[in-house]
């Protein structure tokens, strides 16, 4: 294996796994996704290495996950809430964030990707549009719908909690 590639995987692998976990909402899918993208990146490594490899791989993770063919082949659909909430101290804030995490699983893949890229990676709409190969206005639509859906879900959950 190329030494520069090996070094990259060693240095950045953990961070990529975490990013893929956020994008997928599922650790195992995230692991598979990172490996798949790294294998493809290896083919082009001499070219990628000289031009922001971390950004390249993160972009590939998002695109690969959002692509319609992968969605079909994996047999998944938005609406699944795959991972259990974090255990531990159940303060109100923690409960809210567990609920938000669960509700992220109800978004479409593109909507979820926009949320992660905007609120975790701190990318602006133009940068997100480049990653998703769409226009900034489409990003804004995804973001608006995702936020509305999350808020509505949380409001519903709060209502159910107060009127069991």
């Amino acid at each position: 294996m190329l030494s520069g590639f090996e070094e990259f995987v060693r240095d950045r692998g953990d961070s990529l796994r975490r990013f893929a976990y956020l994008i997928c909402g599922d650790r195992h899918l995230g692991e598979d996704l990172v490996q798949e993208v790294l294998v493809k990146a290896y083919r082009r490594w001499p070219k990628i290495e000289t031009d922001q490899p971390d950004r390249y791989v993160r972009t590939a993770i998002v695109r690969s996950h959002v692509s319609w063919l992968r969605r079909r082949s994996s047999g998944e659909r938005p609406g699944v809430v795959p991972d259990a909430p974090v255990g531990g101290d159940f303060t109100e804030g923690q409960a809210l964030r567990d609920e938000i995490w669960s509700r992220l699983g109800t978004l479409t893949r593109a909507q979820r990707a926009v949320m992660v890229l905007r609120y975790y990676e701190d990318l602006d709409d133009r940068q997100i549009a480049e990653v998703l190969r769409c226009s900034p206005s489409t990003v804004r639509v995804h973001a608006a719908r995702a936020l509305a859906r999350l808020r509505a879900g949380l409001a519903q959950a709060t209502k159910e909690d107060s009127n069991p």
Partner: peptide, 16 residues
């Protein structure tokens, strides 16, 4: 949005 940001960072920093 702040809660969402913290949620994502918390999840990303979980022990893997």
């Amino acid at each position: 949005e702040d809660d969402l940001r913290i949620t994502l960072r918390d999840r990303a920093s979980e022990t893997m």
